[in-house]
Amino acid sequence: MKALMSLGALVGVIGILLLGGMIFNVVPSTTVRLVEGYMPMQMLFELTCFVAGFAGLSYMMNAMGMPFPRFWQGIGFWAFILLYLKYRVYPPIPFSVRAMYGTVSLVAVFMWVSASEEDWKKFKQPIMNVLDAQGGMNKLLRYAYLVLLPILIGGFSYNAMVPKSEEPIELRTVHPAPPASTKVHGKTYTLQTSQNPYRVNQEGKYDQDYTNANIVEQGMGRLMKPNANPWDDKNKGYLKYVREGGEIFFQNCHFCHGDNLNGRGLHAFAFNPIPANFTDPGTIAQLQETFIFWRVSKGGIGLPNEGFPWASVMPPWEQHLTVDEIWKVILFEYWHTGYYPRTWD
């Protein structure tokens, strides 16, 4: 038990030191990278580690005869969460979202300190002490608060009122609702029933199991399966079309979506928001192939209002590519990222 707790204490101390380093810019916040696509899980995992670590730390300090008052534990933990959200996570979380998380964690901290009557008493004891101002120290504190609180609150409100030119926050619907059907190059495609004509096996038959079996391997690198090289000249069916789709991708799409389909292409730095990252499980992995077909064909100009159409420079690809080319590119994108398109059933 003791060993476990001291291990926890160590984790807690390291966590506090790391975060401190990030706040003062000694440790770059990219030291332990948040892996694209797994960010929420990673954050939850890290925070769980910290909670366990702090529990161990508090236990150890108790055992060493230096108990840490419940009051400061509560405040300290809340401050830790706020700082963690602000300094650990990159790209930065907008203030409004952080404020939401902050409120939720404040409520959680209150629930924790008021779990029982006794805990609650322990928690509010320091506040009461200052209010009563029995000892000299508490008297001093009371006067300090009397003067500092109005100044601080006045200062904050001044800060909030001074006109500022901060970038307005624009939350945008990433996957707006698609239409029932879309007309591309004179032909109407019903999104519910259309299929990618190139998702075929070696015999040329539509075959999802076959194509899903030949995508790249998930895991670091996302490399092709050893016996499924799209550059093999003997390929027929799916892999041949993957290669053709890749050629179109690298002649048209990589400028924005990047050589690794992660939205970090040559021109990406100039755009806001930066282009979609297909390797993120929140993009094409969440969508049906026909949805992608509609988005690719119609581009930013074809988005409905909730998608805030004019913030997207996505070309309406029907102006540049044929229907066959669009389907092949979509095939390639799923192959290269190692995801399956969602299906209607």
Binding site: G221, W231, F249, H254, D259
Partner: peptide
Amino acid sequence: RVYFTKCVWCHGVDGAGDGPG
């Protein structure tokens, strides 16, 4: 295997810098 997944698209099959892109 890495080359033919990631690099070939620009650098080409023979590495002559003549891939599809």
